[in-house]
């Protein structure tokens, strides 16, 4: 049996500004086994990054506030940890890499020292040992150790992202959260970076949460997928469930927005309209105003997730009328 690493239940995170309450994440539940990769998919403002920051306990407060729920890592609730305890967990057990490698690195420190710093924070080793380990980590991500003493601006975008990965993995975390790690990169460089991430994930037997809007990247990397819309999970399941048995109208719309590389010249069939303002979410199903299958009831009461087959959850009350993708 696979072992459970992360279990999130009923997580809600809102941002409070002067006169608005932005409901970024609403009652989200997720779970992840050891060695698994979960894809968190959604458009701008869906709450993907806020969930990740929640797991890291890095939601800026104020304005952000975790209203409730549980985030269990190996059975321990991270939301009950003291800040000092969280500092030991961050980087050692859970690491995060961000979209933009240009802003994630310190411009006035050498890349080697930045990796060594992380190692020294989490393990009692001498400077020399940390430097040696840092050099090994650099090589692990395919950067020659001779470049240890160079500064971030001397590296290209793809290499910077590999350095960020090296820092995140330097203490061999159990869980890596990657927030759009390749969105800023060109496709051949993206292929290099994804390749390295997959390789290291297997080598270190890590679990990974991959935040992305690119269903192509999800297809290549993920075992499980959760589709987010307006702070809620609207569909979740294994990659097979999501790609082969797409059920939620929003997920169907996402796929319909993608031009096919295989070259069919049909018109794209995107979702009409725009994502709702998270400070003024519609009542009932959040997707109802844009949904081609909506009925009057959709806009009235909240819709619960339903299990349509073992492990495949969908938040829609009219599933019987929704045809899947062709």
């Amino acid at each position: 049996m696979s072992e459970k690493l992360l279990n999130i239940e009923d997580l809600s995170i809102h941002y409070f500004t002067e006169n608005r309450e932005v409901c970024a994440v609403n009652h989200v539940a997720l779970s992840l086994d050891k060695g698994e990769t979960l894809g968190l998919v959604g458009e701008t403002g869906a709450g993907k990054t806020t969930i990740a920051l929640g797991i890291m306990r890095l939601v800026p407060n104020p304005p952000g506030k975790i209203l409730g729920g549980r985030i269990e890592l190996e059975g321990e609730n991270l939301l009950e940890k003291k800040n000092s305890e969280m500092q030991k967990i961050r980087g050692a057990k859970v690491s995060m890499i961000f979209q933009d490698p240009m802003t994630a690195l310190n411009p006035i420190d050498t890349v080697g020292d930045q990796i060594a710093e992380c190692i020294r924070l989490h393990s009692h080793v001498s400077r020399a040992e940390a430097a040696l380990k840092a050099a090994e980590t650099l090589e692990m991500v395919g950067i020659p150790r001779e470049r240890y003493g160079e500064y971030p601006h001397q590296f290209s975008g793809g290499m910077k992202q590999r350095i960020v990965i090296a820092i995140a993995l330097s203490c061999k975390p159990e869980l890596l959260i990657a927030d759009e790690p390749t969105t800023a990169l060109d496709v051949t460089i993206q292929a290099q970076v994804l390749d390295i991430m997959n390789d290291l994930k297997n080598k270190l037997n890590m679990s990974m949460i991959l935040i992305t809007h690119d269903l192509g990247v999800v297809a290549e990397m993920c075992d499980k997928v959760a589709i987010l819309y307006a702070g809620e999970i609207v569909e979740s399941g294994t990659a097979e469930h999501i790609f082969d048995d797409t059920r939620h109208p929003y997920t169907i719309g996402l796929f319909g927005s993608l031009p096919s590389v295989a070259g069919q010249k049909r018109r794209l069939t995107p979702v009409a309209g725009l994502t709702p303002d998270p400070a003024r979410l519609p009542a009932g199903c959040k997707f109802a105003p844009r949904c081609p299958h909506r009925t009057p009831e959709c806009g009235q009461e909240e819709v619960a997730l339903r299990e349509v087959s073992p492990g495949h959850w969908v938040r829609c009350r009219n599933l019987e009328h929704v045809k899947g993708r062709e």
Binding site: T188, Q192, V217, V218, A219
Partner: peptide, 16 residues
């Protein structure tokens, strides 16, 4: 190198 939204098509990536 294009990631395709299809889990059944495994292609031979040329990593430059």
């Amino acid at each position: 190198a294009i990631p395709e939204p299809d889990i059944h098509r495994k292609k031979n990536r040329i990593i430059l």
